[in-house]
């Protein structure tokens, strides 16, 4: 097995697990952090897939700006997801 594909599989799995955690987490701040971890795993995957242009825009947007925007919104609304 190619080492790149192995890394891709590991990173994809980490991304999937953290995506699941982000969806099921009730505390919104924690969910945002899980989502950022998932984005980091995906950024590594994009790098392994030889798309440096996408990585350069994916890291600042998905790890920096997007969680920051969500943190601001959580600060303005509520930090816990309401009962369904």
């Amino acid at each position: 097995m190619d080492i790149t594909v192995l890394f891709l599989a590991i990173m994809g799995t980490i991304g999937l697990v953290f995506a699941y955690l982000a969806v099921t987490e009730r505390a919104l701040v924690k969910a945002i952090i899980y989502s950022a971890v998932q984005s980091m795993a995906f950024a590594v995957m994009l790098y392994l897939l030889r798309a440096p242009d996408i990585v350069l825009v994916y890291i600042p947007v998905s790890v920096g700006l997007y969680p920051a925007a969500l943190f601001f919104l959580v600060g303005k609304t509520e930090s816990e997801e309401g009962e369904p």
């Binding site: 242009d53 350069l56 825009v57 600042p60 947007v61 920096g64």
Partner: peptide, 14 residues
């Protein structure tokens, strides 16, 4: 090299 206006803009925004 890889990169461009949008990439640089979002890095500066961080």
């Amino acid at each position: 090299s890889p990169g461009g206006g949008f990439q640089a803009g979002s890095i500066l925004a961080v």
